[in-house]
Design a protein around this nucleic acid. Structure first.
Ligand SMILES: NC(=O)c1ccc[n+]([C@@H]2O[C@H](COP(=O)([O-])OP(=O)(O)OC[C@H]3O[C@@H](n4cnc5c(N)ncnc54)[C@H](O)[C@@H]3O)[C@@H](O)[C@H]2O)c1
Ligand SMILES: NC(=O)c1ccc[n+]([C@@H]2O[C@H](COP(=O)([O-])OP(=O)(O)OC[C@H]3O[C@@H](n4cnc5c(N)ncnc54)[C@H](O)[C@@H]3O)[C@@H](O)[C@H]2O)c1
Lengths: 204, 204
DNA sequence: AGGCGGTTGTGAATTATTTCACTATTATAA
DNA sequence: TTATAATAGTGAAATAATTCACAACCGCCT
C-alpha cells in the first residue's frame, strides 16, 4: 500500500467528497463505482484506483456506503483539521477570496489579512482587521499560520513571497503570473487564470 | 510536427511567452534552451520538445532569438486575435475578474456582463453595462461572444450553463465547484480553487 | 447450502508525458 | 579555412497516469 499518490488523485478526492455530500442530501445510502463514475463523468476504474491508494472502502457485490465513504475521504483530506491561512493583497482578487464561504467548510480558517495600502491597513474589511504587510512575520509566527494566498500585484509578488518564507509559511497558493523563486521546502501552487483561459481558447 | 499536442504544452507556452516579454524588457536578445529552462525551472528537453510540436525556431549553436520566439508563440496562441468573452454572475469573483487588466493583453475582450440581481441589472459596473441574465441568448448571439466566465452561485450554475449552451457559447471557464453537464461540443475548463488549496494542504 | 448476478480491488496493459542521449548544425576562435 | 564548442531538434527510453480485465468476493434467492 506504500505508494506515491498522484496529485490528480487528491484533486479528484475533493470532487468525490462534494458529490457524496450531494448524494447524502438526496437520501442515497449506497452507490456503485460505475454509477458514481457515470455521474462524475470519469471512468469507474479511475474512481476505484484512486480509492485503492488509501484502502478498501467498498463491498464487493454491493458498492460503497455513501456516508462511510464520505467520512473516509474527509479523514484522508483532513477536512476536520483546521488549517490557518492568510490572504496577502486585498485588491480585486484578495477581496473575492476573503468573501468566499466555501473555504471554511474544508477546514481553512482565515486568520489574518495583509495589505500595504494606508487606505486598508487598520481598517476592518468584511469583519477582518487588515494588518500592515510589515507585520507579516510576527503575525504569521504568533498565529502559526501555515498557508498564504498571494494576491498582490505581480511586481510585488516575489518580494512578498520571500517575506512569507521568512515568516515560516509552509505553502503558498500563488495567484500572480510570476514564477516564485523560493526554497524547495515551501510548497507552491500556481493558479494561473490567464493560462486557463488561453488554453481553453486555443483548443476551441 | 506531431499530431496531438499535450494540453500542458499549451499551458507552458504562455509561461514561455511571459518570460520572453520579461527578457526583452531586460534587453536580452538571445537565449539558449538550457538557460531559459533554468529560469523557468523546467528541463531544457521539455522546453525544446514543446516548441518542436510547432516547428523549428532556434539556431543550433546559438539558441533562440528572444523577439522572434516571442512572436512565434504569440502566433501559436493567437494572442493577436481577439476573443469575445462575457462574465456571468457579478458577485465577489465576477467583479474581481471584471477588474482584471491581464486578460486584455492576451486578446480577451469583455463584451458583456450579466447578473440576475435587480440591484445590478441596467447599472454600469466598472464601465460595463450589466445585462439581465434573461438577455443572455440574444446578447451573446448578436455580439458573437464565444467564451463565458461562469461565476454565479453553485445552485444556479447548471441552469445558467445550459442557457449558455443555447446561446451558442463555445467554451466556459467554470469557477463553480459544480460539474456541468452539457453537450460534448462545448469546451469546459474548471477552476476549482478549493481543490487547489486542499491539494496544497494535503501535501504539506 | 449452493449458485448467481453484481461489484470491488488490483496487476497488467495501454496511453500520455517527460527525460535521455545522440546527431546535425551553427558560431566563432585560431 | 578548419577545428572546436555550443546547442537545437528528435527518436527512443523512461516515467507517470489511466484504463482494462478478471479473480475474489458479497448478498440474495431458492
Ligand atoms: N483580479 C483578477 O481577476 C486576477 C486574475 C488573474 C490573476 N490576477 C493576479 O492577481 C494579482 C492581484 O490582482 P488584483 O486584480 O487583485 O490586483 P489589485 O491591484 O486589485 O490588488 C492588489 C492589492 O495588493 C496590495 N498590495 C500592493 N503591494 C503590496 C505589498 N507589497 N504588500 C501587500 N499588499 C500589497 C494593494 O494595495 C492591493 O490592495 C495580480 O498579480 C494579478 O495578475 C488577478
Ligand atoms: N469568491 C471566491 O473567492 C470563490 C472561490 C472559489 C469558488 N467560488 C465559486 O464561484 C461562484 C461565485 O462565487 P461568489 O463568491 O462570487 O458568489 P456571489 O454570491 O458573491 O456572486 C454571485 C453573483 O451571481 C449572481 N447570480 C445569482 N444567480 C444568478 C443567475 N441565475 N444568473 C445570473 N447571475 C446570478 C448574484 O446576483 C451575484 O451577483 C460560486 O459558485 C463559488 O462557489 C468563489
Amino acid at each position: 500500500m506504500k505508494k506515491i499518490i498522484p496529485r490528480k488523485t487528491i484533486q479528484r478526492l475533493l470532487l468525490y467528497y462534494r458529490y457524496l455530500l450531494f448524494l447524502l442530501q438526496q437520501g442515497t445510502k449506497n452507490i456503485s463505482s460505475t454509477s458514481f463514475a457515470d455521474i462524475l463523468e470519469i471512468s469507474a476504474a479511475q474512481l476505484r484506483k484512486d480509492l485503492s491508494y488509501f484502502g478498501k472502502f467498498g463491498t464487493q457485490g454491493a458498492g460503497y456506503d455513501v456516508l462511510a465513504l464520505r467520512d473516509e475521504i474527509a479523514k484522508i483530506l483532513g477536512i476536520d483539521k483546521e488549517r490557518k491561512v492568510c490572504i496577502v493583497g486585498l485588491g480585486n482578487l484578495g477581496l473575492a477570496l476573503l468573501g468566499y464561504k466555501g473555504f471554511a467548510s474544508l477546514g481553512f480558517v482565515v486568520t489574518a489579512i495583509f495589505d500595504n495600502s494606508p487606505q486598508k491597513i487598520g481598517r476592518k474589511i468584511k469583519g477582518f482587521a487588515c494588518y500592515d504587510i510589515k507585520e507579516l512575520i510576527p503575525v504569521v509566527k504568533n498565529n502559526k499560520i501555515e498557508i498564504a494566498l498571494l494576491t498582490v500585484p505581480s511586481e510585488a509578488a516575489q518580494e512578498v513571497a520571500r517575506r512569507m518564507e521568512d515568516a515560516g509559511i509552509k505553502a503558498i497558493l500563488n495567484f500572480t503570473p510570476v514564477k516564485l523563486s523560493l526554497s524547495k521546502k515551501i510548497k507552491i501552487n500556481n493558479v494561473d487564470l490567464a493560462a486557463e483561459l488561453k488554453t481553453l481558447s486555443y483548443f476551441l
